[in-house]
């Protein structure tokens, strides 16, 4: 019973120190929630604003000269990116709601805290799967797949791909913030003060 009783002693006996730690946990929580909100918002906005038109020459018949055709790349042409935007928008909206709820219940309400961490776990899953989907498709666009004759498209749509990369990176930071939000407050709260 050594470890457990020790730590519960620490948490209970702290008094003013415990209040300081509570404040630290609260601030940490708020800052990370804010960070997550900003990152997911930026990721969603950057990718929704992503659009590029490029001139591609297509050779229809071998004997004729190639035709120049303007081709547009938009984010909603790829279902993985649609899912990515959906995930980021959901996470962004949730970050706002949870920010307000955390601010409103700073002192009371352990039940609310549990509820929020339940939804945090869901957001981690949602955001990471969205990131995985978008990164896989982005890699496909960057490198293509010679076995399936899927050509790479990033040599044509350079700007589009760069913007997608930026968005992916930002979203990855946002999802890391959610991940930390899930892990760090319990760690800080239950860790022995020394």
């Amino acid at each position: 019973m050594e470890g457990e009783s020790k730590s519960s002693v620490d948490v209970i006996d702290e008094g003013s120190e415990g209040k300081g730690k509570e404040l630290l946990v609260g601030t940490c929580d708020l800052v990370m929630r804010l960070l997550a909100f900003v990152m997911t918002l930026v990721a969603a906005v950057v990718i929704v604003a992503d659009k590029q038109t490029a001139i591609v020459s297509i050779k229809l018949v071998d004997s004729e000269p190639p035709l120049d055709v303007p081709v547009t790349a938009k984010w909603h042409y790829l279902s993985a990116l649609v899912y990515f935007v959906g995930a980021n928008a959901t996470a962004c909206a949730y970050a706002t709601v949870s920010l307000v709820l955390t601010l409103a219940n700073r002192r009371k309400g352990k039940g609310m805290e549990t509820l929020i961490s339940v939804f945090d776990a869901l957001m981690v899953a949602l955001l990471f799967s969205g990131n995985g989907a978008a990164i896989a498709i982005g890699l496909l666009g960057l490198q293509g797949n010679s076995h399936l004759h899927w050509n790479k498209v990033c040599n044509v749509f350079g700007k589009f791909c760069h913007q997608t990369t930026v968005s992916l990176f930002t979203s990855l930071l946002g999802s890391t913030a959610f991940l930390l939000l899930l892990v760090v407050p319990p760690l800080l709260r239950l860790k022995r003060t020394n």
């Binding site: 899912y83 990471f128 896989a136």
Partner: peptide
């Protein structure tokens, strides 16, 4: 969770 959710998303999208 982060690792396997992203793996599922990646495989699913491809």
């Amino acid at each position: 969770l982060g690792i396997i959710a992203s793996a599922t998303g990646a495989a699913g999208s491809v």
